[in-house]
Design a protein around this nucleic acid. Structure first.
Lengths: 329, 329
DNA sequence: TTTTAGCACTTTTTGTTGACAAGTGCCAAT
DNA sequence: ATTGGCACTTGTCAACAAAAAGTGCTAAAA
């Protein structure tokens, strides 16, 4: 569809614009390509006609359109070796044996955010994939205790509950009952099972069954389970397209505060690294999301980097690739 | 020190400026006070001389100085009844019996943030005030398990650990040993006690003591314990003094991302509601922090609202007061 | 002694104008 | 298919003028 030179021109314009967000004119390109600026202008016109480039006003240089970025990512971008410095800094995190796996992930995304000045996100796995492993109760004082829920994937959540006039023995009985009866149940089905399988039985064994049942019921129905971790929110402000336009920042920030983030691009369930440019993502039209899933010992989650559409695609993809690989082994 | 009229003028200027951040001239005030603008100008000059007002340029109206706000909060502000609408929305949260106390706090601060367009913060108690209550271990698979730490104030933290070739029995023994020997120790002394009181003994009871000791040692030395919850970060952008000056936003945001927040104003240990204006707080010179501590069943924490110095002081103080009272009973 | 009217002065804001730079589109020539 | 040339458009910047808002100060009035 595009000639060789047109591809070259598009690539040059995009890469220039990513480095420095000012419209690119035909003159600079013509010097690099050793042809006249008129030639370049003709091709630029064609590229604009195809929707890959845009102008900011009638006589300005060109900037990439959303479709332009898409085309670039799909066809033009070359993933060379990762930058040595980036590599080194990430390796330091992974070399640190002290850290638990989840901390390593968070830390390494933090490092990415610091190095690239983009925002990074870590998402925990989905609730329905966690099975109840075990619950524990720790008494705090006469009336309050802590219920701890552990899932088979190692997810832990806890709640304070207050019970008047219930002996610790009764509580222990209930806990044992629950552990025996519904351990292994998917978390979001626990509430139901509690009602139909535990409630009928609990009355025979435990005195204050009504009160106890209610307490546990609430503990489970509140189980959110989705860990969301956003790093480097303020990095968004380092990007010129945002720092010059507060409304955009407002938009993105309010989206980032909403755990509805989860829905992100949950639609495709791709395992590879995927790039969602502008309207392709559910966060905001003005950003690009690069994300991937990881799986480690059955635990799974999503890591993503959010930046302007004018993002260093190759660099970020490389970094995420590196992290994903290092997590998974 | 100040005449009656001067106090009135200062109050009027500050309250006007809080509603709408444009310098206030003598004319508007003179109309309200039924005196000539020249009279007002004289008093304004005096107020400026005292450091309570400022000008943005030689011939502009006046805006409050930091000292002006201070004086206002200390002497001029009247805490009338709380706004009925505010009251209602907060009560809805507290009426919800389903929620655990910590959720109620978070929710109500979220509501404050939404209503006022300021940022709200919930801080957990300080680490050295928590004593180790109990630890629990839940095995996940052959090599990994979860260690759960519970403090006497009901704070819970957990860590994944991986142990090869260690039987569950050995682990249980170690856990019992720790629970018996150092339960009741302040969290930040646990690592030390582990080394000097548990390590020497553990060898006699447990086979893989070296490995186990190391694992637990790490679990405790990583115990952060401080829960930090920031709500409505992006609200900062709604405030004109920030949305017109990106650098300020950057500053505040990077502070809000740093859990060094904790240090906030830990210096005074006031139990009342306190207002820290501009340089009086440790967050940022351009903001005011209104904060208070709460205590509930021995558990304690801090709640705070962060906004521009041009903040609706009376409203926020009222709201925090209300929340504090409702938490504590 | 306190308040006020009046006026000169300062600064910000807004709009206009003109010159200049950057870049385009297109046509005719190569 | 490529190129040189040229007319045209738009944004940016500085200079300037006029208007708006508000002050400080002085001298008179209360």
């Amino acid at each position: 569809m595009l000639t060789d030179r047109q591809n070259k021109i598009l690539k040059l314009i995009i890469e220039r614009y990513i480095k420095d967000p000012i419209p690119v004119g035909s003159k600079v390109i013509s010097k690099i390509l050793n042809c006249s600026s008129a030639t370049v202008r003709n091709d630029m016109g064609e590229l604009e006609h195809q929707g890959l480039l845009e102008k900011t006003h009638t006589s300005s240089g060109r900037i990439p359109s959303e479709e332009g970025y898409r085309y670039y990512v799909d066809n033009l971008m070359e993933l060379k070796k990762m930058n040595a410095e980036d590599m080194l800094k990430l390796q330091i995190v992974f070399r640190n044996q002290q850290l638990a796996i989840s901390d390593v992930i968070t830390k390494s995304l933090q490092v990415i955010s610091d190095m690239t000045n983009y925002t990074a996100v870590v998402l925990g796995g989905a609730s329905h994939e966690n099975l109840l492993k075990q619950i524990e109760v720790v008494p705090i004082d006469d009336v309050s205790m802590i219920v701890i829920i552990v899932t088979d994937k190692g997810h832990v959540e806890h709640k304070n509950i207050h019970l008047e006039d219930v002996s610790m023995e009764e509580v222990k009985k209930t806990v044992n009952l629950i552990n025996n009866l519904i351990s292994g149940t998917p978390i979001d089905e626990v509430s139901r099972k509690l009602e139909f399988e535990v409630k009928p039985i609990i009355g025979n064994y435990v005195k204050q069954h009504e009160q106890l049942y209610n307490a546990f019921y609430h503990v489970f129905s509140d189980f959110t389970n989705q860990e969301v971790n956003v790093m480097g929110r303020s990095k968004m402000l380092e990007q010129p397209e945002f720092s010059s336009n507060i409304d955009r920042v407002k938009n993105v920030f309010s989206k980032l505060e909403d755990p509805e983030l989860l829905q992100n691009i949950t639609e495709d369930d791709e395992n590879n690294i995927k790039v969602y440019i502008g309207k392709e993502n559910n966060i905001d039209r003005d950003v690009t999301v690069i994300q991937t899933k990881y799986k480690k010992d059955g635990e799974e989650g999503t890591i993503a980097v959010i930046g302007p559409k004018r993002m260093e695609y190759d660099r970020v993809v490389n970094m995420l690739e590196f992290i994903k690989e290092n997590i998974e082994r």
